[in-house]
């Protein structure tokens, strides 16, 4: 059995984001990382593979810098690495991305797919359900844990009254939320094996895809509005004013 993990490289949460000419300046991003929800998905997929055998293929789409992500995935245990080469990844809308990833999943022969519930940069949250629809698979979202269970899988996700366990059989897609597992740290052996592991690079043409044109166009990016300056109060006379603001404006007391 082959398990696919869909990984997205996003600016690290500590990286400074700059906007120039109405676009996020990717060249100014000092550090790229796994999208955090993808890390949970990868760790859960590794654990599932370890419990039942099979192969794990890590799939990412994007420019050449994304290969780092695949090496990192290999260092913790991904068996096969697939890079869908696409320099203009930001020009694709969610539907196009889903087509791209669904085609790669099918080409990899995977029947079980793990991904994050949303990417930490675009946050659209559509990849898991979209890919599931295209490959004709069941989809479970907001998953925190997956175990194998009598030929199928048992996924834990939140419900209105706590947690529910959902039984599903392949083909299926699990979109991961933050759960009980943190991604493992690699070790030197894994890192050295990752170095030797080949990365399969697939172009959009090789996947036989006609993605058409994007249905949406991004007008511009803008940084978050700056926080308004704080207010300063001095002296005992201001106590009643401060208490009033904390109570009526900040609603904290």
């Amino acid at each position: 059995m082959t398990i696919a993990v869909l990984l997205k490289q996003v600016p690290d949460t500590t990286a400074k984001i700059t906007v120039s000419n109405g676009r996020v300046d990717e060249n100014a991003v000092s550090k790229w990382s796994f999208s955090p929800y993808d890390e949970y998905a990868l760790e859960a997929a590794l654990q599932l593979k370890e419990s039942m055998g099979g192969e794990l293929v890590a799939i990412t789409a994007g420019p050449a810098r994304c290969e780092k992500l695949l090496r990192d995935a290999a260092a913790v245990g991904a068996d096969n690495l697939v890079h869908i080469s696409a320099e203009n990844i930001n020009d694709f809308d969610s539907t196009q991305m889903q087509k791209l990833l669904a085609a790669a999943v099918e080409k990899s022969g995977s029947s079980v797919v793990f991904c994050g519930k949303q990417a930490a940069d675009t946050n659209s949250g559509s990849t898991g359900p979209g890919v599931a629809e295209l490959i004709g698979a069941s989809c479970i979202t907001m998953v925190s844990e997956v175990i194998s269970d009598s030929g199928g899988y048992l996924a834990t996700r939140p419900s209105s009254s706590g947690h529910e366990k959902v039984a599903v059989s392949a083909p299926c897609v699990f979109a991961f939320d933050k759960g009980v597992v943190e991604m493992r740290r690699p070790n030197v052996r894994g890192i050295m094996m990752a170095k030797k592991k080949p990365i399969e690079t697939w172009s959009i043409e090789e996947l036989g895809l006609d993605l058409g044109t994007s249905g949406i166009s991004i007008d511009s990016h803008s940084p978050p509005a700056e926080k308004p300056p704080g207010q300063k109060f001095e002296g005992a006379d201001s106590v009643s004013t401060v208490v009033g603001k904390l109570r009526d404006e900040a609603n904290v007391i």
Partner: peptide, 14 residues
Amino acid sequence: TEEERMVRDMVRDF
């Protein structure tokens, strides 16, 4: 090298 940077990141995380 990429390998050396990966080792760095691993130890830094530890």
